[in-house]
Design a protein around this nucleic acid. Structure first.
Lengths: 175, 175
DNA sequence: GAAATATGGTTCGGGACCAAACCCTTGTTG
DNA sequence: CAACAAGGGTTTGGTCCCGAACCATATTTC
């Protein structure tokens, strides 16, 4: 039987997480394929977010979420806040705070919807537009860097599989 | 030329984001394959996190990050905080706060490292162990649900492509 | 071996984040 | 049409989150 333990305090650097999981959970009745697929989605997402924050967003004063919210409004044009929250993947209460921050930078503006006074519309200001026009190409260059090691077929397969996952989950979401 | 605008306030429900992006950015010189791959990683990751929070974690009093931190300590056994932060994908300052929360629930314990008094070790308490043993199978069942619509080949291909992305980014990370 | 440097964790300030409670406005129902 | 229910945004309380400043302990350098 092979000795698995390495040195006391540095084992994380020598053994991969996936090996450790195999050691720890090897005997259990688990769906490992599902586990690796899901956990790698999360790991990739974290790594990508960190990368983009530290390259494109580094000196803009924008947070990741701030950027995503502006991106949504940029793509869709003037929008109702509840759609923006949904698209950005954040709770409506969170959006209130994010919009407050973005408004303080004069990147977005709120406007009441005259047809329904409960609703609030969001638009980019000219300076917000300018920022997105300059940021987006940089953003896309880094996206290309992220998937540089995958050939075109794999990129498309990756996106397609993820779309299936997302649609499956959103289709099953509770009301 | 076809009229693209739908009704004033409900367009998000009728047109997909990817279509809107095509409209808005169609003319620009962008790497769309990279864009769809990356943005779907992010969307999937958000959808999965929401799903797992609302199924497995719902009534446990654990947050997503709290669970991830406990998972890391569970898999690796007693660990130094800096490795835990790295594995969990959070900053060391964040970990301090998360550990404080988990300690208040008596799920983990801190212990000074006698060999180096700067260092702090983390372990699960017996009650933390019990929680993980009961939670993990549920977690894995939901992971299986998440990728239910993908066949085995696609699951493995998905995990493999994401591993490539992660290793590419971590290999290029700044020092 | 004392001074300078590096390493490890905590603290701090400003945001992000959610669920639940809260208003206000609109829609429904008797 | 008045009471009630539903819908939409904000507030609140507690946690997470990061980078930078900080403090204590180790290591290196001279």
């Amino acid at each position: 039987m092979r000795e698995r333990r390495t040195e006391m305090t540095g084992h994380h650097t020598l053994r991969s997480t996936e090996e450790a999981v195999g050691d720890r959970l090897g005997g259990l009745d688990l769906d490992f394929e599902a586990m690796w697929a899901v956990s790698n989605i999360y790991r990739a997402s974290t790594a990508i977010r960190n990368h983009l924050e530290q390259t494109v967003l580094r000196d803009t004063g924008l947070t990741w979420t701030g950027f995503v919210v502006m991106w949504v409004v940029w793509i869709w044009g003037e929008s109702e806040t509840r759609y923006v929250a949904k698209e950005a993947g954040i709770a409506k209460g969170t959006l209130t705070g994010v919009l407050k921050t973005l408004e303080s930078h004069r990147y977005v503006r709120r406007a009441p919807n005259p047809a329904d006074r409960r609703r609030v519309m969001v638009t980019l200001t000219p300076s917000g537009e300018r920022l997105m026009r300059s940021l987006f190409p940089q953003f896309n260059r880094e996206e290309a860097f992220v998937v540089k090691e995958l050939d075109s077929r794999r990129r498309r397969a990756l996106a397609a599989s993820l779309r299936v996952v997302v649609q499956h989950l959103e289709g099953t979401a509770r009301p």
